[in-house]
Computed example of a mutant assay.
Amino acid sequence: MQIFPTSLDGVLQITPQVFGDERGYFYESFNARTFAELTGLHPDFVQDNHSRSTRHVLRGLHYQIRRPQGKLVRVTVGEILDVMLDIRRSSPTFGKWQSMRLSAQNKHQLWIPPGFAHGFAVLSEWAEVQYKTTDYWMPEHERCIAWNDPALGIDWELDGPPSLSAKDQQGKPLAQAEVYP
C-alpha cells in the first residue's frame, strides 16, 4: 500500500499493492495495522456502504453536521469523479475542493477525514462505490452543499446534465451552509 497526500489538509490517496496473474488479481482493500503504520491514523470504521449508480448520476455534496464521518472510498465497478470539499473553518484548506478519478481499473482509494463534504459523479455506464465510515448515518444531521455552487466552480466532468436526487437538488451554497468550526 502506498499513501499520497493531496492538496487538501488530511485527505489521502491510497494505492494498494495488487498481485495479479493470468487468472486475475488480489489486493487488500484495507488493513488497519498497515494503514496505521503508514498514516499514523487509527479510524474506527462502524459502517460499510455500497451504492450502484448509472452514468450522469451525481451524489453530493453530503456531510453530517453532527457526528461527522471519515470515509475510506473505493470503486469496484466502473469509474467516478470523486469530489471532496473542506468545510472546516479552522483548516488551511477551508472552502477548497479537489477531485480525483476512482475506478475499478486504477483501484485507487481516498481517505476523507471528518469535516469534509463529499460527492461523486458517475463517468462510466454505471459504477459501484463502496466506502467505510467512522460514524453511523444519521439522516437528521445530514446536510448538502449545492453541487453547482458558482463560488466553488467544481468541474464534475460530465458530458450531459446530471441526474440528481430531490435532496441534492436542494443543496445550499457553501456561503449559506452549516460548517464545522
Rank of each mutant, 00 (worst) to 15 (best):
M1I: 07
Q2V: 10
Q2A: 15
Q2K: 11
Q2E: 11
I3G: 00
I3T: 06
D9I: 07
D9N: 12
Q17N: 11
V18E: 15
V18T: 05
V18D: 12
G20C: 04
G20L: 02
E22F: 13
E22K: 12
R23K: 15
R23L: 14
R23G: 12
F26I: 08
E28D: 14
A32Q: 10
E37I: 01
E37Y: 11
T39K: 07
G40T: 12
L41T: 08
L41C: 13
L41I: 14
H42K: 13
P43G: 09
P43E: 09
F45D: 02
F45P: 02
Q47G: 13
H50Q: 08
S51C: 06
S51W: 03
T54Q: 15
H56M: 02
H56K: 04
L58S: 05
H62Y: 11
H62N: 02
Q64M: 09
Q64L: 05
R67M: 00
R67C: 00
P68F: 04
G70C: 06
K71G: 08
K71E: 04
L72W: 01
V75I: 09
T76A: 09
G78S: 03
G78K: 00
L81M: 15
V83L: 07
M84C: 05
D86I: 03
I87M: 01
I87G: 03
R88K: 02
R88T: 02
R88Y: 05
S91V: 07
P92S: 03
T93I: 10
T93W: 13
S99V: 01
S99K: 00
M100H: 08
R101I: 08
S103M: 05
N106L: 15
H108N: 13
H108Q: 15
H108Y: 11
G115P: 02
G115C: 13
A117R: 00
A117F: 01
G119N: 00
G119I: 03
A121V: 02
V122G: 00
S124R: 06
S124E: 12
W126N: 12
A127H: 03
V129P: 02
Q130D: 13
K132R: 14
K132E: 07
T133D: 05
T133N: 05
T134I: 06
D135L: 04
W137A: 07
M138S: 15
P139E: 03
P139H: 08
E140N: 09
E140G: 07
E140A: 14
E140S: 10
E142K: 12
I145V: 12
W147F: 15
N148T: 07
N148I: 04
D149M: 08
D149N: 11
D149F: 05
P150L: 02
L152K: 05
I154T: 06
I154M: 03
L158F: 13
G160D: 15
P162I: 03
K167M: 06
D168P: 10
Q169L: 10
Q169K: 14
Q170I: 03
G171M: 06
K172W: 11
P173S: 13
L174P: 05
A175D: 12
A175F: 11
Q176C: 06
A177E: 00
A177S: 14
E178L: 08
V179T: 08
V179Q: 09
Y180R: 03
P181H: 11
